[in-house]
Structures are given as structure tokens and as C-alpha cells.
């Protein structure tokens, strides 16, 4: 937290937003990997993704960004930073990214308000968007899900157990995520 505060002080408002967006993307990426191992809903959603496909979510023009890769039927979180990807979903600016990544705005609203663009196949963009909605279900609190989703998600008992595990392991997973090789 001290590091985050000093970054905010050093870089001003933009630096603070970058730091918050980075943390949110790190949480999203590492949770994506974990949920893909345990959630039957997410497994079904990504079943048709081509093995080896790399997808990136980030902020235009140079990040922060995180990317994931479909590997052995699951998702591997590649790490933070811009990289070559088969599909990129980019927020046009940090303010727009902040609204979505901090649960103030749903992804569909961000697209309706022209706050994000897709580089690559739009169908693949839809698939990534649906998958990220499933991942968000496990990291956002219910009041945010109710506010930002068109139809609030339904939780099975397995989902609730997984959500508890996700929250309990979030911090160590994020630390481990930071260590991963950054895309360049």
C-alpha cells in the first residue's frame, strides 16, 4: 500500500489511476486463470477458444494491460504489459478503464458509451467479454454485480465456495502474478 501511495504522489492523478487500473487488471488476470480451472461455466465458455490464442485487456495507448492465453483447455495469465495478441480490448483512456475495472460501469455500458475498442475479430471480442463477466462474478461484490450487469449472475453452491477460495487466495495470487514475465 505504501508503494501504491508513493506512486500516486510521484505521478499525480494519472499515476494513481494507472496504479489502481494495474492492480485491478492483475486481480482480473490471476483470477481468470484460477476460475478457468474450477468453474464449469467458464470452462464451457472457453471450450471453443483456439488453443494458443492470446487475448489482451488494457488501456490505450500503452497500458496498463494484462494478457491471457488459452492453454491445455484452461487459461494461463501471461502477466502485465502490452504484448502482441490475437485480440485486444482497449479502453480509450484511464478514466474509462477505471469506471469498468472498479465496478462502477458494466462492460456493455462501456461499449455503448464508445469508451472501449476491439482490435481483431469482434466475435472473439464477444467471447472474451462473456468470459470476463464470469470471472468478475467471482471477484466483485454482489452490490456491484447487481449494478453493472444487465441481469445479475446466479450463484450455485459450488460458485459460492469458489468465490470464497478466490477471495482467500487473491493476494498471494496477485503477488505471484507480478513476478510473471511481462509481455513486451
Amino acid at each position: 500500500m505504501d508503494g501504491l501511495l508513493s506512486l500516486i504522489k510521484r505521478q499525480g492523478s494519472s499515476g494513481g489511476k494507472k496504479a489502481v487500473a494495474s492492480v485491478a487488471l492483475l486481480a482480473l488476470g490471476s483470477t481468470f486463470e484460477m476460475v478457468s480451472e474450477h468453474s464449469s461455466e467458464l470452462k464451457k465458455e472457453i471450450a471453443d477458444w483456439q488453443d494458443g490464442v492470446v487475448m489482451l485487456l488494457g488501456v490505450f495507448p500503452d497500458g496498463p494491460a494484462m494478457s491471457v492465453k488459452k492453454e491445455n483447455g484452461g487459461i494461463r495469465f501471461l502477466g502485465m504489459g502490452m504484448c502482441d495478441a490475437d485480440l485486444k480490448v482497449l479502453f480509450k483512456n484511464l478514466d474509462s478503464a477505471m469506471m469498468v475495472l472498479t465496478g462502477q460501469m458494466g462492460a456493455h455500458t462501456a461499449f455503448a458509451q464508445c469508451r472501449a475498442v476491439v482490435y481483431g475479430n469482434l466475435g472473439a471480442g464477444m467471447q472474451l467479454s462473456r468470459a470476463l463477466n464470469i470471472v468478475q462474478k467471482f471477484i466483485l461484490p454482489s452490490f456491484m454485480l447487481n449494478r453493472t450487469f444487465k441481469r445479475p449472475p446466479v450463484f450455485s453452491s459450488d460458485d459460492l465456495l469458489l468465490k470464497a477460495r478466490v477471495m482467500a487466495t487473491l493476494a498471494p495470487r496477485m503477488i505471484s502474478g507480478v513476478m510473471r514475465r511481462q509481455c513486451l
Binding site: 462492460a107 456493455h108 461499449f111 455503448a112 469482434l122 466475435g123 472473439a124 471480442g125 464477444m126 467471447q127 467479454s129 462473456r130 450487469f149 444487465k150 441481469r151
Partner: peptide
């Protein structure tokens, strides 16, 4: 139809 971008802008999920 679920992979069509138009779905994003539909009011109902």
C-alpha cells in the same frame, strides 16, 4: 448469435 457484437447493445441480457 451470441458472438454477434449487436448483442452487447441489446437492453436485456
Amino acid at each position: 448469435s451470441l458472438d454477434d457484437g449487436s448483442i452487447t447493445y441489446n437492453p436485456e441480457e
